Amino acid sequence: MRVMVLVKATEDSETGMLPTTELFEAMHKFNEALAKAGILRAADGLKPSSAGKRVAFDGAGRTVIDGPFAQTRELVAGFWLWEVKDMDEAVAWVKRCPNPMPGPSEIEIRPLYEMSDFE
């Protein structure tokens, strides 16, 4: 089962605050453990939404919207793509993760559609 693990943005991440050396090292160790376990497929952090754009679709029309975007808690600051046996394994790994932000934060786990879902 493939899952996208989403690190939700915070006020700090939206200001462009970079992780401390300690947090960077802790996350690196966590990513190494994921890779050693054969789970990690991809991982990266995202720049603040002020550096982003959205494209809104309405029929054939397209509208480009410049960041920053409202509702910080609904934004994504980083992600992993994992291959796990089930959602329980994904949750267990997230519980081992260092807190990715200096204060309170959330990580969301979402399963990806597989070809078998469409058969």
Rank of each mutant, 00 (worst) to 15 (best):
Asp86His: 02
Ala90Thr: 11
Ile39Lys: 04
Gly67Cys: 04
Arg2Lys: 15
Ala33Val: 06
Gly67Ala: 04
Ala9Thr: 01
Leu75Arg: 12
Pro48Glu: 08
Glu106Met: 08
Pro19Thr: 00
Ser50Asp: 11
Glu83Gly: 09
Leu46Cys: 02
Asp44Pro: 13
Leu81Ile: 14
Val55Ala: 01
His28Glu: 00
Arg54Val: 02
Asp117Glu: 08
Met1Leu: 12
Val94Glu: 10
Glu89Ile: 01
Leu40Val: 08
Val76Thr: 13
Glu106Thr: 05
Ser49Asn: 01
Asn99Ser: 11
Trp82Tyr: 12
Pro68Asn: 00
Met87Phe: 12
Arg96Gln: 14
Ala42Gly: 14
Lys36Glu: 15
Ala42Met: 11
Ala77Glu: 03
Leu23Gly: 05
Leu75Ala: 09
Thr10Phe: 03
Ile39Gln: 04
Met101Phe: 02
Gly103Lys: 08
Glu11Trp: 01
Leu34Tyr: 10
Thr72Asn: 06
Thr10Met: 04
Met87Gly: 06
Ile107Glu: 01
Glu22Trp: 07
Glu11Cys: 05
Gly67Glu: 03
Lys29Cys: 13
Trp82Val: 15
Leu34Ser: 12
Ala37Phe: 05
Leu46Gln: 05
Thr72Glu: 08
Lys85Phe: 06
Ala9Met: 04
Phe79Asn: 09
Leu6Ala: 10
Gly78Asp: 09
Ala77Met: 02
Asn99Asp: 12
Met17Glu: 10
Ser49His: 01
Val64His: 09
Ala9Glu: 13
Arg110Cys: 02
Glu83Thr: 13
Thr20Trp: 00
Lys53Val: 02
Ile109Val: 10
Val84Thr: 15
Thr10Lys: 01
Phe69Ala: 00
Ala51Thr: 13
Ala35Asp: 12
Ala70Trp: 01
Glu25Ile: 06
Leu75Ile: 04
Glu108Trp: 07
Gly38Asp: 14
Asp58Gln: 10
Val91His: 11
Val3Arg: 08
Ser116Trp: 07
Gly103Thr: 10
Val64Ala: 00
Met4Ile: 13
Leu46Ala: 05
Glu108Ala: 09
Ala35Cys: 11
Asn99Pro: 09
Trp82His: 14
Asp12Tyr: 10
Glu83Leu: 11
Val3Asn: 00
Thr72Ile: 15
Val5Thr: 09
Val3Tyr: 15
Thr63Gly: 03
Glu22Asn: 07
Ala43Asn: 12
Leu18Pro: 03
Met115Ile: 14
Asp86Ala: 06
Glu14Asp: 02
Arg62Asn: 00
Val84Gly: 12
Pro104Asn: 13
Asp86Met: 06
Pro98Ala: 07
Ala9Lys: 02
Val94Phe: 07
Trp93Glu: 10
Leu112Asn: 05
Pro19Leu: 06
Gly16Pro: 04
Ala37Val: 09
Met115His: 13
Val7Pro: 08
Trp80Lys: 00
Ala35His: 12
Ala60Phe: 00
Leu46Trp: 03
Thr21Ala: 15
Met1Val: 12
Glu25Ser: 14
Glu106Val: 03
Glu106Pro: 05
Leu112Trp: 10
Ile107Gln: 03
Ala90Asp: 13
Leu6Arg: 12
Thr10Glu: 01
Ala35Leu: 14
Arg41Asp: 12
Asp66Glu: 11
Gly61Gln: 08
Ala51Cys: 13
Asp58Cys: 07
Ala26Arg: 15
Arg54Trp: 01
Phe24Asp: 08
Ala33Met: 14
Glu106Phe: 01
